[in-house]
Design a protein around this nucleic acid. Sequence first.
DNA 1: CACCATTATGGTATAATTGCCATATGGCCA
DNA 2: TGGCCATATGGCAATTATACCATAATGGTG
Lengths: 117, 117
Amino acid sequence: MAMKALIKCNSKRYPRQRYEFRARIAKALAHPSRLLMLDALAEGEMCVCELTELVGADQSTVSKHLAVLKQAGIVEDRKDGVMTIYSLKTHCLSGMWKCIETVLKENLKEQQKALGE
Amino acid sequence: MAMKALIKCNSKRYPRQRYEFRARIAKALAHPSRLLMLDALAEGEMCVCELTELVGADQSTVSKHLAVLKQAGIVEDRKDGVMTIYSLKTHCLSGMWKCIETVLKENLKEQQKALGE
DNA sequence: CACCATTATGGTATAATTGCCATATGGCCA
DNA sequence: TGGCCATATGGCAATTATACCATAATGGTG
C-alpha cells in the first residue's frame, strides 16, 4: 500500500496568508514590461514618459503597470512638477534574478540535452 | 519644458527576451497554492497525494499547479511505483523570499503609519 | 486478470489580466 | 486665462488563468 499524507495541512507551519502575500508580490513581477521597468529603475529613477518610451506601449498601459508595482510596494513615486518620478523602493529584488537565471540556464541545458537524444 | 526620454529602448541593454523568460518564472510563482507547495518541498520531496492534502484543493487542480512549476523548471518529478514524487530543482528560490518579506514588512509599516495620521 | 490507488488530462464555466482608446486631472507657461 | 504637457482612470474587448468534474492512463495487488 502506498504511503499516504504524512503531512497534513498545518496552518501554523504553512499559514495561508503568507502565501497570499507572496503571491501578490510575485504577480506584480509576472509581466515582461514590469520587469523591464524594474531593471531600468535599478539604475536610477525615471519619469513615466521615459518608461513609456522604454517599454514601447501606450502611456496609459505603462501607467497601469506602474500602479501595479506601486501597489505591491516594489516602487514608489514622487511628483516633480507635472511629472511623476518612479524609483525602486528596494534594490534587493534585482539580486534575486541571479538565482532565477540559474534555473533558466539549467532548463536550457536540459532542453539541449533532450534535443540531442 | 519637461526633460524627455533620455533613455531610449535599447534592446542590447534591455533585451525583451530576458524579461519574457523572467516573467515566465514569476508567473509560475504567482499563486498561493504553488508557493505553499514550494515551501513544503523545501523540506523534502513529496508525492502528489501529500501535496493535495496539504493544499486542500482538488487533486486535478494540484496536478496542474505542479505541471506549471515543472514547466517553469522550478521543480522536477520522478516516478515511484504508482506515485509521482516532486522535489525542488533548486533551493535558491526559498532564500529570495527573505527579500520579498522585507518589502512586505515595509509596506505594513507604512500602512500603519498612514492609519495613524 | 479484475480492482484499487495515484496521477494526468480534457472539458467548461468563471474570474483575472492586459491593452488601447477616450477622457479627466493637474501643473506650467506665454 | 488658454493651451499644452505629463499622468491617471474608466470602459471595453480579447486573452489567459483557475477550479472542479469526469475520465483516461498506469502501476501495484489479491
